[in-house]
């Protein structure tokens, strides 16, 4: 029972990670752009959400409607004004640029919101749970998992079936060849990053409802997203989802073994995958 509970909680935790991993799968997995500020953007959006919910009294759903477009706009600007200048075969410039952005963002948030942890009140939804045969399943985590699944499926279809998805895959495979086939890689990349960060608008609300948020929380969210994408396999949208589940389950089981072992168990699973199957679980070959 204890282990079944750990498994279920792990899958639910994985649902949260899958939301961060989705944007990461698109940017790092497909476009090969390293965005160190990914986690800080989640935190930024969560903090903006908390402030709006306190100041204006917006509920979670209206907040999503405000934060997702805002996040998409941030992503679009990030690609247009920063990342498009550093994309290329060498990933060091994008790593350094977004690293600098991450430091600036973290400390800016610290100045604005101080180091305190905060949380968002969702009118009871954050505490609601159902008892299934002795295992308590939170309503919010289930909602997060459903949202993550739908988003992953939707993004996967977009990548495989739409004009935009084909253009993005083409530009990621060979930017110059895509350009001479009529694609404007910069515009396609700007839209892709708008999607990747736009999803974080939703994740930010869920994050604030589910846990406490402080300006220094970004790097941890970033590392989980990276781990999930690499465990799952680069270039695969569902890979990031599967990787998130593996990571969530590893952490939940580790936590049941010893509370100090939870996060470490996730890292150890990641390092094991890196050592034995660096191309990831979902990737071919």
């Amino acid at each position: 029972m204890k282990w079944l509970d750990a498994l279920i909680q792990g899958v639910l935790l994985g649902g949260m990670y899958a939301q961060y991993a989705l944007g990461m799968a698109l940017m790092f997995g497909v476009m090969r752009i390293v965005n160190i500020a990914h986690g800080d953007l989640v935190v930024l959006l969560a903090l903006i959400g908390i402030t709006l919910s306190v100041a204006v009294g917006l509920g979670p759903l209206p907040l999503v409607l405000v934060l997702v477009p805002l996040a998409a706009l941030i992503g679009w600007g990030l690609q247009k004004f920063v990342l498009n200048k550093v994309v290329g075969a060498d990933s060091l410039p994008s790593l350094i640029a977004t690293f600098g952005l991450s430091i600036a963002l973290q400390n800016l948030m610290l100045e604005i919101w101080s180091a305190d942890t905060r949380s968002m009140s969702g009118g009871g939804i954050e505490a609601a749970s159902v008892n299934v045969g002795g295992i308590y399943i939170g309503l919010l985590p289930v909602l997060i998992l459903i949202a993550a699944t739908l988003l992953t499926g939707g993004l996967d279809l977009t990548m495989r079936r739409t004009r935009f998805g084909r253009a993005l895959r083409a530009a990621a495979a060979d930017t110059e060849a895509a350009a001479m086939t009529g694609v404007n890689p910069r515009v396609v990349y700007a839209y892709a990053t708008a999607i990747a960060v736009g999803i974080l608008g939703l994740s930010g609300v869920f994050f604030a409802l589910r846990a406490t948020v402080s300006p220094a929380d970004g790097p941890a969210q970033l590392i989980y997203a990276f781990e999930a994408v690499i465990i799952g396999g680069m270039g695969s949208i569902w890979g990031g989802f599967v990787g998130s589940m593996v990571l969530g389950i590893a952490q939940a089981i580790g936590f049941r073994i010893d509370p100090g072992f939870g996060t470490l168990a996730g890292h150890l699973v990641f390092l094991t995958v890196l050592a034995t199957r660096p191309q990831g679980l979902m990737s071919k070959g």
Binding site: A97, G100, A104
Partner: peptide
């Protein structure tokens, strides 16, 4: 604030 400035300096250097 100084860390914000240092972060932005790193960003600008990379760009």
């Amino acid at each position: 604030v100084y860390m914000v400035v240092l972060g932005l300096m790193t960003l600008l250097t990379a760009l």
